[in-house]
Design a binder for these strands. Structure first.
Length: 399
DNA sequence: TCTGGGGTCCTAGGACCC
DNA sequence: TCTGGGGTCCTAGGACCC
């Protein structure tokens, strides 16, 4: 159906949960609500940094990434909870479920934030009314406070949600950009981190306004193509659509762990890799994906970190196949020096069905005829493992 | 008394092929 | 006594984000 009138722009919301992990803890344990609260790992296992903290703790000077002992010094009555990621993922799913009632154009950006395109939701009210309803609904139903940005694109919506926390709603129009964004230091911009900020400072760019007005060639020389994109955004321009499928297409699944002590014993390291691999495989099964590229991460005691990866001939999902590659990579590349952290990541993951189709064995059959074959293959793969089955098909193909 | 764990995207160099 | 150029794949690392 054709639009009745021309669209003069989009309406994008960015919804950002405030102090998410701490909010979830307090939602399940109301007595925590009026206490300074932080979520942090166990310092004895060298995981003692603040993952997040509520606003009472922030008032005392506690912030994310601060070490726990430092946080306790600033705020002696700080209540500390260990992280419970399963609980956070569960709450996150409920929140996105709730949000999907407002618009199908919903893109989760991380566990605690997402974008929503409500351009065509005018029947539900003005953008401000919709934002208010979302904010109140999430607070009443799940005790999760959120900040919301309302803007004509994703970048401005993200900048807007950041302006009032907690429980803020901020409208940022394109015409507000010179007054509101341009005076801000350039590192406040989403996409400009420490390194980029330093490079920008070197060419005399200190504010978002400086960036917006900078010469394109200069930015290209300093930051490559990314510099050009950043300048566009500094001018309030961002054409990226809200893509509901973006998060559904996972690219990698990994687990890593900092060891309680630096380890030099090979057997201990291999056992750790086995645990990590098992966890990655379980998550792959849950998501029904296979991997075509295995990566390990080794962080040495001096914090020097290396990654080593290997493309696979055949997509893999089974523990024994993947672990084999993990151990090979580790034995080939470990220097023998004490290790602080190990990681295992499945890169280039694709849907299992898709991977089976890639074998391209039945390219002359119709889809409907192929389906039972795919199912049969799935069952065989389940029983015997990917490599064996695929070798079998290659052999058959040759005949 | 140091510095977590989960991701995405981009770049650059070497191998290899034509 | 000279030694191309383009394209693709693989690998490693850097930057950024929450």
């Amino acid at each position: 159906m054709k639009e009745m009138y021309p669209k003069n722009g989009r309406v994008i919301l960015h919804i950002d949960c405030n102090a998410f992990f701490a909010s979830v803890e307090a939602a399940y344990c109301p007595s925590l609500r009026d206490k300074p609260l932080a979520v942090a790992g166990n310092p004895k296992e060298r995981r003692g940094i603040i993952l997040t903290c509520n606003y009472l703790a922030r008032e005392k000077g506690v912030y994310t990434t601060m070490s726990l002992w430092e946080a306790k010094k600033k705020c002696p009555d700080l209540v500390v909870r260990p992280p419970n990621f399963d609980l956070y993922r569960e709450m996150s799913a409920k929140i996105f479920d709730f949000l999907s009632n407002f618009s199908p154009l919903l893109e989760p950006a991380s566990i605690d934030e997402g974008y929503m395109d409500i351009t065509d939701c005018y029947e539900m009210g003005t953008p401000l009314e919709i934002a208010n309803r979302i904010q109140k609904g999430l607070l009443d139903t799940y005790q999760i406070p959120v900040s919301i940005g309302i803007a004509p694109n994703k970048f401005l919506a993200k900048m807007a949600s950041n302006m009032r926390k907690p429980l803020g709603i901020t409208v940022l129009r394109k015409r507000d950009v010179p007054n509101i964004l341009w005076p801000l230091p350039v590192q406040k911009m989403h996409g400009v981190g420490e390194k980029t900020a330093r490079k920008l400072h070197e060419i005399g760019i200190y504010t978002i306004g400086d960036l917006a007005k900078a010469q394109e060639g200069l930015l290209k020389n300093t930051l490559g193509i990314n510099g050009v994109y950043l300048r566009e955004r500094a001018n309030g321009v961002d054409h990226h659509p809200v893509d509901p499928n973006a998060a559904a297409e996972i690219k990698s699944i990994g687990n890593s762990t900092t060891l309680p002590h630096n380890v030099i014993d090979e057997q201990t390291l291999v056992e750790t890799l086995e645990k990590l691999t098992r966890s990655v495989c379980e998550r792959m099964k849950q998501k029904s994906v296979v991997t075509k590229n295995i990566q390990i991460t080794i962080r040495y005691s001096d914090f020097h970190t290396v990654t080593r990866s290997k493309k696979l001939e055949n997509p893999a999902i089974h523990m024994k196949d993947i672990f084999h590659h993990v151990v090979q990579l580790f034995k080939k590349h470990w220097t023998g020096d004490p290790v602080r952290l190990l990681g295992v990541t499945a890169l280039d993951v694709v849907d299992r069905k898709h991977a089976v189709k890639q074998l391209d064995l039945f390219s002359y059959e119709e889809d409907a005829k192929r389906e039972p074959l795919f199912q049969a293959i799935e069952q065989l793969v389940e029983k015997y493992g990917d490599t064996v089955i695929q070798r079998g098909f290659e052999w058959r193909k040759k005949r």
